[in-house]
């Protein structure tokens, strides 16, 4: 039973820039929460503050109710997996895993047992005698994970652990990590800038920008109902169209959509899969390019003023470049002043 609470944490760097700005988050027992954001959004700084490698300028961090805000990393019940895996290259795999246990003055036989068990858990049974430099990237990252897990931390911290791996390996490893995390029921905070990773692994996603929370929620909710234009643009592919609303009608260069909101500027967000195309004359929009992905197709189209939209279609062979089309959104969200004001 381990609960992580971050309350009102602010980190100001010595130039006055806010890396993290009054950030609060509760992570429930056994939950995996993803901090998702572009580089510079403060997600890594936040994780490093939870791990004890950075001191917050203000705010509190508690684990199971105990204030750890000012404890050094070695006295926190957290285990961190680094992006660069940071294995100790002068030790073999066994020694890498045993180091923390030795510091806890555990008897040698018990250390051997634990290390073998955790190697088994990450699928590297029998690799204890290898030097870390002899392992592949994926194996090194597994050892790094095992090094944290063997100490049974209350909170597991993962700092973009798969960033240095290729796509295929990344997908496999994130499934494995998710399985292990659920089997152990370990409370986990995961930093990534990859939305795929966040959507596929997390119980909840925290989308961050400029040191602040943009939205917190379940992956499907964040994907389907982004609360700010930033989240809308950051998660998945999204058409963001800026235009004017007057008399309940949103217009942008020949493209119109009924929108029951007050008059004024608005940003319309439409997923490519929610944008239907029908053949028409070229007055509204023209097809720029058609890409066939096999399972589906993607049509790039230009509105009369050149605004580029993307539409996902089931039969890409029905469209060709230069053809006139009429884009019809099935579902939209509208934003004004950085707030969602309408959703259909």
């Amino acid at each position: 039973m381990s609960v992580l609470q971050i309350s009102e944490v602010t980190k100001t760097f010595s130039g006055g820039t806010h890396a993290v700005n009054s950030f609060s988050l509760d992570v429930a027992d056994g939950e995996l929460v993803c901090l998702l954001g572009p580089s510079g959004s403060g997600k890594s700084t936040l994780l490093r503050m939870v791990g004890g490698f950075e001191q917050p300028t203000s705010g509190r961090i508690t684990i199971d109710g105990e204030d750890v805000t000012h404890l050094p990393p070695e006295r926190r019940p957290t285990g961190m997996v680094f992006q660069s895996h940071a294995l100790w290259t002068h030790m073999n795999v066994f020694k890498n895993l045993a180091f923390g246990l030795k510091l806890r003055r555990m008897p040698a036989s018990e250390i051997r047992e634990k290390v073998e068990a955790v190697l088994e858990l990450v699928g590297l049974a029998g690799y204890g005698d290898r030097m870390t430099t002899q392992l592949s990237g994926g194996q090194q990252q597994r050892v790094a994970l095992a090094r944290s897990l063997v100490l049974e931390p209350k909170i597991l911290l993962l700092d973009e652990p798969f960033a240095s791996l290729d796509q295929h390996l990344r997908e496999r490893l994130r499934e494995e990590v998710r399985d292990i995390q659920q089997r152990l029921g370990i409370t986990t905070l995961f930093v990534t800038h990859g939305q795929d990773e966040a959507l596929s692994m997390a119980d909840r996603i925290v989308v961050m920008a400029n040191g602040k929370t943009e939205q917190i929620g379940r992956p499907d909710v964040v994907y389907r109902d982004p609360k700010t234009p930033f989240v809308a643009g950051f998660i998945g592919t999204m058409n963001l169209v800026e235009g004017e609303v007057s008399n309940g009608q949103f217009t942008r260069s020949g493209f119109a959509f009924p929108l029951p909101i007050a008059d004024g500027p608005a940003t319309l967000a439409i997923r490519p899969e929610s944008l239907d195309l029908t053949a028409s004359d070229a007055s509204k929009a023209k097809v720029h390019r058609v890409t066939d992905y096999g399972s589906h197709g993607l049509v790039d189209l230009d509105l009369a003023d050149g605004t580029r939209l993307k539409s996902m279609v089931a039969h890409p062979d029905l469209f060709q470049a230069g053809q006139g089309v009429d884009p019809k959104p099935r579902a939209v969200a509208a934003y004004r002043n950085n707030q969602q004001i309408f959703r259909s």
């Binding site: 050094p72 990393p73 070695e74 090094r147």
Partner: peptide
């Protein structure tokens, strides 16, 4: 690598222990 030293702090080593067990052997 500073991350190596941080990883050692993370598993419970004091700064002195980190120097002795990680930094010195790495630079050795």
């Amino acid at each position: 690598d500073r991350r190596m030293e941080e990883a050692a702090r993370d598993v419970g080593a004091s700064p002195l222990r980190v120097f002795w067990s990680i930094t010195l052997p790495q630079a050795g």
